[in-house]
């Protein structure tokens, strides 16, 4: 029975002991610990989130860099291709122009040559005609001292000339 009956004296001393300890712990003990741990949790949480964000940012940055490099490569290729095309075009145009000029010069030269040749031929013909006329005059002066021979020769010449004309035509 003594086990089950509460004792006033013990209750009083328990109230004092427990009360003081409860006051001390409630003021300086547990709230300090829990508050600090909560703060630490927040800190760890925010640190983790920060790290995650940084990682994502880094990844984005890397992707951006890659994209930049790729576009630069593309641009380079494009520029090179364009340059090559331009070069080819210029060369082609230059070639065309050169060939036109060359052809023109060639044609001019040809015309000149033909002209000069014609002129030369004309001159030679004239010279030859003059020479032959001179020679013929001299010969005729010697040979055609009498009237007879003169007439015979004229006949003969005329025949020859007509023959020559037929040939040349």
């Amino acid at each position: 029975m003594a086990l089950l009956l509460p004792d006033g004296g013990l209750l009083f001393w328990t109230l004092i002991s427990f009360g003081i300890v409860f006051f001390l712990l409630a003021k300086f003990g547990f709230p300090v610990i829990t508050k600090s741990v909560e703060k630490r949790r927040e800190f760890v949480q925010s640190s983790l989130e920060g790290a995650k964000e940084a990682q994502i940012k880094l990844l984005n940055l890397k992707q951006e860099g890659d994209a930049l490099i790729e576009s630069a490569n593309n641009e380079q290729g494009k520029i090179l291709r364009e340059a090559a095309a331009e070069r080819d075009k210029i060369i082609k145009v230059a070639k065309e122009q050169a060939s036109i000029i060359a052809k023109k010069e060639f044609d001019d030269a040809k015309l000149q040559i033909a002209k000069e040749r014609d002129e030369a031929i004309l001159n030679i013909r004239r010279e030859v005609a003059m020479l032959s006329c001179d020679i013929a005059e001299k010969i005729l002066r010697e040979k055609l001292s009498d009237k007879q021979t003169q007439m015979e020769f004229i006949e003969k010449m005329l025949g020859e000339m007509s023959r020559q004309n037929k040939l040349s035509n």
Partner: peptide, 29 residues
């Protein structure tokens, strides 16, 4: 009564000595 007192003192020492460190690190560091 004495045992309650001793246990209370032990409890107070235990928790307050631990809390002293946390008081210096309230920012969670």
């Amino acid at each position: 009564s004495l045992s309650v007192l001793l246990n209370s003192i032990l409890l107070a020492i235990l928790i307050l000595s631990v809390a002293r460190w946390y008081r210096k690190h309230l920012d969670g560091s």
